[in-house]
């Protein structure tokens, strides 16, 4: 089926099977490598992306439910304050979970405090097997603070 959406600020049109997940559409059709599939069961968060500003697990979100929507992957936030803070805090090792972490931090509403406890709670749906979360959590706290301070 013909699929189309605005992905990371760019209009994407491609053929995608109607029973595909959003992650499959983005990775396959849209050749977007910022969406990783690690578990395929909606538990690890590596495939996180925003659909109309709402965070979803791309691996279990129907591609065509996102038809015509504005979709943001980690590529939308490349080298931004959150990504930079994660890098600086040593929150990036193998990097397979990192794009999903970046998206997760960007999806947080203003009622999530930019504190260690707030971030640990908010990122409980993002698994990482490399860092023990220490650098990730520290980086996410700093990144969220910078984001809220309006840092570009």
């Amino acid at each position: 089926m013909r699929w189309s959406a605005e992905v990371d600020g760019r209009l994407v049109e491609c053929d995608v099977p109607g029973n595909a997940s959003l992650a499959e559409a983005l990775r396959g059709g849209a050749e977007n490598t910022a969406v990783k599939v690690a578990c395929g069961e909606g538990i690890c968060g590596a495939c996180s992306c925003l659909v109309a500003g709402e965070r979803v697990h791309g691996c279990i979100y129907p591609a065509f439910r996102a038809y015509g929507q504005v979709i943001q992957t980690a590529a939308s936030f490349a080298d931004g304050p959150v990504a930079r803070a994660l890098v600086e805090a040593g929150g990036v090792q193998c990097g397979f979970c990192t794009p999903g972490m970046v998206v997760a931090v960007h999806s947080l509403s203003t009622d999530v405090p930019a504190t260690e406890a707030g971030i640990r709670h908010a990122l409980a749906g993002n698994l990482c097997r490399c860092t023990g979360y220490a650098g990730l959590v520290a980086g996410a706290v700093a990144g969220l603070q910078r984001l809220r301070a309006g840092e570009p």
Partner: peptide
């Protein structure tokens, strides 16, 4: 804590880095 992040960390965070499953 001094030291430096991995050289490819920014590419990984941006989703630019290519893994085997991206080839």
């Amino acid at each position: 804590m001094s030291g430096m992040p991995l050289l490819d960390a920014a590419d990984k965070a941006a989703g630019r880095a290519k893994y085997l499953t991206d080839f």
